[in-house]
Design a protein around this nucleic acid. Sequence first.
RNA 1: UCCUCUUUAGCUCAGCUGGUUAGAGCACCUGACUGUUAAUCAGGGUGUCCUAGGUUCAAGUCCUAGAAGAGGAGCCA
Length: 479
Amino acid sequence: MKRTIINELLHQNEFGNKVLVKGWVRNRRGSKNVAFVALNDGSCINNIQIVVDFANLGEEVMEGINVGASLSVEGLLMESKGGGQRMEIIAEKITLLGPADPNKYPLQPKRHSLEFLREIAHLRFRTNTFGAITRIRHAMIFAVHNYFNDRGFYNIHTPIITASDAEGAGEMFQVTTMDLKNPILNEEGNVDYKQDFFGKKTNLTVSGQLEAELAALAMGRVYTFGPTFRAENSNTTRHLAEFWMIEPEVAFNELTDNMDLAEDMLKYVTQYALDNCMDDLQFLSKRLQEEEKGKKAEERSMELIAKLHSIVDNDFVRLTYTEAIDILRNSKPNKKKRFNYVIEGWGADLQSEHERYLVEKHFKKPVILIDYPAEIKAFYMRMNDDGKTVRAMDILFPGIGEIVGGSQREERLDVLMEKMAAMNIPEEEMWWFLDTRRFGSVPHSGFGLGFERLMLFVTGMGNIRDVIPFPRAPKQAEF
RNA sequence: UCCUCUUUAGCUCAGCUGGUUAGAGCACCUGACUGUUAAUCAGGGUGUCCUAGGUUCAAGUCCUAGAAGAGGAGCCA
């Protein structure tokens, strides 16, 4: 007999047929004559209820059917006599596939702390919360590819191992095959990378942008969606050492086009979650409300599904860095010196308390900030005509902070080279990048979207380590 | 990396100004129950009180150092 996936079963309207399901026991209850087993196979948040009537099957079939055990169940699919579910399977044959010793199995049918579940990341897929997150994560990956594919973008696999040391996006993980105890040294006594695997010093990528630019300046519209590595000693709820980043890069796009693309894309993928993950979103929404019960009303977050709708239905606020500074300078917390970093004037880098004020207090919706001072942004961003700001673009989301960082790129060779010289970026290592500005250079733009930060927003989770199956962070690489 | 907090049963947590035998709920085991919904009811305690020092007649409780975890900051996506 062919196995039926539980999600398909739960959408059926025909009863009385014999079915076969397989899955893991989430819970069991019993009384003298009958026992109930909640079975889940990962296909959806809901369980199928298995009814074990001791008149049909001996009481001993329940032996070993504990939380966590895996079962194969044959029986009749019937409308449920109980109130909690539409249907159930009256078991005719139950096979215990793999027992789970209840004295050792760490999961119980009750709420566990997310910290505890992080310590058992190999088993946390078996919880409702991580099941929901895992299904939503898949849907979001799919939505991203769908979005770009439908709009004629090409997916580019940019290298994971890179030799360019000039990206300036953060500390890097070195890649080497050398013996760390006994590295090969050159005449000066330094490590001789000419003898290393690639013949030069290499690292894990911190961004696929530079390579994506090369592709965009021939293919038109491209995007990358790959793993990205930052060796920063960051211990926050929104940083990972290994994360997935989406980086579209589009030839002939100027900054406004870039903003339009990012906003449209974020709305599309959010709508995709609403259209395809409603059961899981509803579960996460309830979970979040439950968790925030103890908080004061004004500290609670907006209901998850309403929050997602508000993103889709409202335009993002667009304003320049200069306008933002004016708002902040005249804001109550600034005047009353409540900010840890009081805004004195133009040129200061915005701290997360300022970003949060703009997004969560002042505008109460996503904000796209553009035209930052050149000094606080990367070398490749296009200089504005004022000579002091660049066409940078950060998108700030409520509760998350910076979810997108992007810019129109500097396409003018002379301006770019001047900038690189000023920022001490070695020209000879970047010859291939500069070639694109030497031959058929055009205006172009792109951005980086942190996939896990998007996941934080869509799932309403509070810690980035809970929206990726196996988080990599300082002192965390167990699984 | 910096600041703050936390670490007690398998899990979630209580344990007062230091006081002798360390507690609760859930899980688990046994039994009861006519179909349960995190079932319910009765009984059963399963412990390196994070680690190493120290103060004290006496330390889960106080002090010092360390480890791990969390929250915030910085860095950023």
